[in-house]
Design a protein around this nucleic acid. Structure first.
Lengths: 119, 119
DNA sequence: GTCCTTGGTCACCTACGGTAACTCATGAAC
DNA sequence: GTTCATGAGTTACCGTAGGTGACCAAGGAC
């Protein structure tokens, strides 16, 4: 039981760091990609257009470290590595899905606002 | 009517950019701060611990440009500037709130996973 | 022997974000 | 009448996060 409740507004609160990480540009898309089941490294890379190997590796390592994703190496050549969501990772799908849905649904309004602002 | 549906997985899709922006570290906290009504610049700055003037200005400008926030300057000295959510901005509160709630609720599990990973 | 594959690391370099100083206009203090 | 304080910024500088491209290992195909 923490003395203080987690408060994302505070700079050094762990919940702030966690929020930063799940709000991360690549994290959102990677987790969404794993929604329908395990995926290989290169599958994720192809799906998430524009992510570099470096950042994908880094993102997946961080997700693994945080217990959101499992990493399974199959001892073959060429190597095959599969990533899958843990139950904890799955629990993020709803909030992240809502965010992605908001983005696609309100895209038009935002673009209108941008044009209005430019004038 | 767009020829293709917005697809955040594609690098150059506007929905991707929008998703990047609303997933932004400061954007999330700033919008949440405005939940209960208009706030002055320095109020937001105090509430969102750790944000620099530069980034707060930048974030608020972007939110204004995207039609999520209104900016009202009162012609006084010293100046008073108030920021408030637009209806479009309000519609983001639910998804973002869900995200922040997830972060605070699952913080413990993530920390456990991190300790397990370290070993 | 050469080449292709997959997942990943390493060196380099640009661009984003933080820090701190300065601005602008006014009213109050002395 | 000269200093100071105030709120909302802007600007110069600087370190680091993130992108780019080369390279690596191990085996199979040719």
């Amino acid at each position: 039981m923490p003395l203080l409740p987690p408060d994302p507004y505070q700079r050094d609160c762990p919940s702030r760091k966690l929020l930063d990480r799940i709000g991360d540009r690549w994290t959102v898309l990677v987790i969404a990609t794993l929604e329908d089941g395990p995926r290989r490294f290169s599958e994720i890379r192809r799906r998430v257009d524009g992510v570099s190997q470096k950042m994908l590796t880094q993102t997946l390592r961080a997700l693994e470290r945080d217990g959101l994703v499992t990493r399974t190496v199959h001892a073959e050549v060429p190597p095959r590595v599969e990533y899958a969501l843990t139950p904890l990772g799955r629990s993020l799908l709803d909030p992240l899905g809502a965010l992605m849905r908001w983005a696609t649904e309100h895209l038009g309004e935002v673009e209108q606002a941008q044009q209005a602002y430019a004038a």
